[in-house]
Nucleic acid binder design. Sequence first.
DNA 1: GGAGAATATGTCTGTCAAGGAATATATGGG
DNA 2: CCCATATATTCCTTGACAGACATATTCTCC
Lengths: 113, 113
Amino acid sequence: MIATLAALAEPNRLRIVELLRDGPRAVGEISERLALRQPQVSKHLAHLKGAGLVAVRPVAQQRVYQLRAEPFAELAAWTERYRALWAERFDELDAVVDDLKRREKKKKGEPTR
Amino acid sequence: MIATLAALAEPNRLRIVELLRDGPRAVGEISERLALRQPQVSKHLAHLKGAGLVAVRPVAQQRVYQLRAEPFAELAAWTERYRALWAERFDELDAVVDDLKRREKKKKGEPTR
DNA sequence: GGAGAATATGTCTGTCAAGGAATATATGGG
DNA sequence: CCCATATATTCCTTGACAGACATATTCTCC
């Protein structure tokens, strides 16, 4: 999860992923289309591969990269858990009040930690 | 999008978000529950706020942080665009072949870029 | 208005990652 | 085998950021 997020959190890497969404691409073509220098593309692809976001397949002397489904499925599943957010949001004020009360009672000389 | 991903890509920040999923929390309580030092929590919350992931609400001298729905909705929407990935995946080989052929014809002295 | 609690901010340090340029490694063709 | 193409790897410099610690700010209450 963290690996997936970290891999996607870099602008050029996200552009690469968006491009690969339309289908597999060789390094040179990614470099062309996104106007990035080839070594950078290779490095970003290595990063994406390390995070499990892409798979490689050699074709002659080219390497064709392609998105892997799993991480995106996991990300979708993770995000789903937050769907409740854009629904009811107000019954939780009670919880806050409870928390404050509980913390009030616990008031002791706890170090700042 | 990038801001959202970058904010979530840090382990402790993700833990904070996961905690806030259960409802709003004051800084001190986050610090307690996650065993993080208070200044770090404040900084992470500042980061999350800068990315628009949380909103603050003062309650006495406490600051109660709470998740905002929009970024999560956007993330869910973005992820949805990749749902096609865990479906058909093989008709794209044709596209690759086409690409290779096209690149073959274009073969000229283009700088390495 | 002063004390204490809750939170924010500043400084320092170490680490990590990205971009640039050069170079190494494969791969196919004549 | 040597050359050209495609890609990967290395070295360097620079900037961002997380953690630790100390300190400032803000609020409440007496």
